[in-house]
Design a protein around this nucleic acid. Structure first.
Length: 146
DNA sequence: GTTCTTACA
DNA sequence: TGTAAGAA
């Protein structure tokens, strides 16, 4: 069974981050950002919570907001203004989207056995005559065309 | 007990 | 941005 290819959509089901939600108190203790700040940042449209039934009900934040808040907090601690910190975080989130897209589309199948790994990176050419593979050898990835 | 808004420092 | 109030 160890040689069965790993399917990425199964991994996504095993760890489905889309289902993670937090209330303001949790998000605050997770990030070290006060609830007062979180409410203010949301009012400024720097972060967003999920649609509420009415303005009096508790905010609910998606896990992606945890990454955003943590990022803003990081750059704030580095001395950036709140505005500049948000701008920095937006750039990093853009990069993370590109990387996610790259992994999602670029990795076809993964085979593993005994601490080795082979990743099928798909067709190398338009004519689809050659596949590009990455293999783990001696703790390092090497690339092959076959 | 937690979160909400509003208001003041 | 922190803190305190009273309500939900």
């Amino acid at each position: 069974m160890a040689n069965d290819p790993i399917e990425l959509h199964i991994m996504k089901k095993i760890f489905n981050a889309e289902k993670l939600f937090f209330r303001i108190g949790e998000l605050s203790s997770m990030t070290g950002v006060s609830t007062r700040q979180l409410r203010y940042w949301e009012q400024k449209n720097y972060i967003h919570s999920i649609q509420r039934d009415d303005e009096q009900s508790a905010r609910v934040f998606h896990f992606k907001e945890y990454a955003r808040v943590s990022g803003i907090k990081y750059f704030l601690d580095q001395g950036y203004s709140l505005q500049a910190a948000v701008k920095q975080v937006n750039q990093y989130i853009d990069v993370s989207h590109f990387l996610h897209k790259f992994v999602k589309e670029g990795i076809k199948t993964v085979k593993t056995s005994n601490n080795t790994c082979e990743i099928d990176l798909g067709w190398l050419d338009e004519a689809k005559t050659q596949h590009l593979y990455a293999r783990l050898e001696d703790e390092k990835f090497k690339y092959y065309v076959e």
